[in-house]
């Protein structure tokens, strides 16, 4: 037999990236998201000032070459605070969503694949958690243990678990009936193998879409809690506290509220665009079709 080497397939991620940048919406989303993530990552180098250093003489300046977005009532540079606020926003959003996905994935698969009684129990847990209004729940916890970044992360994570868990459960239930799973069983594949190799890869795509769409919600939630003074403790910069400062001073310094609002809007748009584009791309069968 001639020695033919088997060709290597392009990796799944490479394939997704390849299709993503060909979709205008995906490209726009990808650029905005990259900018946000990069600015958060390199905040110490990008921000021209220390975001918490007081500089009373320069207080409440309108935008000028020294302070691109002006300064607040304590003379802190708004641009630097926006950049550092982004870092805080992602510090909250990413671990929150990663945690929620991890727990949601495991619980969802157990519920979808396991025995009926376990499914009912897990669904009951999901419904219980979901029945609390997130903000109320967060306020209650913060009132008990005091405001801190970790509390915010934990609270939002717990309340996001059902979102992912339910999607995973539904997907697992329908995959369980798919002919390829029966085919795997007929080969003798163990339950662990079926879950890990055949179910997980098929639910990750929809989960990625969901996560991209969910990041703005979490960022907004963090901003909201911080706005109410229940989130990140001052003087740590947060888009929410920026908004709060801006809200109080809206009559004399409107740029503060603009500075706090624009990144929130950009984050929402960027991640939503990315999520929309991902939706069309994560399913290999739909790639390159759609006819747009």
């Amino acid at each position: 037999m001639t020695d033919i080497t088997l060709p290597k397939p392009r990796s799944e991620l490479g394939e997704i990236f390849h299709h993503l940048i060909r979709d205008p919406l995906g490209l726009a989303g990808l650029i905005i998201v990259t900018l946000i993530v990069a600015s958060a990552l390199f905040a110490p180098w990008i921000a021209p000032y220390d975001p918490i250093a007081l500089n009373i003489p320069d207080r409440l300046q309108s935008p000028n070459p020294a302070h691109l977005m002006g300064s607040d009532q304590l003379g802190r540079d708004t641009f630097s605070r926006v950049i550092w606020g982004g870092r805080v926003a992602l510090q909250v959003a990413l671990p929150t969503i990663a945690g929620a996905i991890a727990v949601g994935l495991i619980l969802g698969m157990i519920a979808g694949y396991g025995p009926k009684w376990l499914d009912s129990l897990i669904v009951l847990f999901f419904d219980t958690v979901r029945s609390f209004p997130t903000v109320m729940f967060a306020l209650a916890v913060v009132a008990l243990v005091g405001p801190s970044l970790n509390t915010v992360i934990l609270v939002i994570m717990v309340t996001s678990i059902p979102t992912y868990g339910r999607v995973v459960r539904t997907l697992t239930q329908s995959l369980k009936e798919a002919e390829f799973i029966t085919a795997e069983k007929s080969l003798g594949a163990s339950t662990a193998r079926i879950m890990g190799i055949h179910i997980v890869p098929n639910v990750l795509g929809p989960l990625a879409v969901l996560a991209a769409m969910d990041i703005p919600t979490v960022v907004g939630l963090e901003a909201g809690l911080s706005f109410l003074g229940m989130g990140v403790k001052p003087p740590t910069p947060s888009w929410g506290s920026l908004l709060n400062d801006g809200y109080n001073l809206i009559r004399n310094t409107p740029w503060l509220i603009v500075a706090g609002g624009i990144p929130l809007i950009l984050t929402t748009l960027g991640f939503t665009f990315l999520g929309e584009a991902l939706r069309d791309v994560v399913d290999p069968k739909l790639r390159g079709k759609g006819g747009k």
Partner: peptide, 16 residues
């Protein structure tokens, strides 16, 4: 061993 009715549907879609 068994071969299934739906030729494509019986192959796990994310595997080569």
């Amino acid at each position: 061993v068994m071969m299934f009715q739906d030729p494509i549907g019986s192959l796990s879609p994310r595997l080569t």
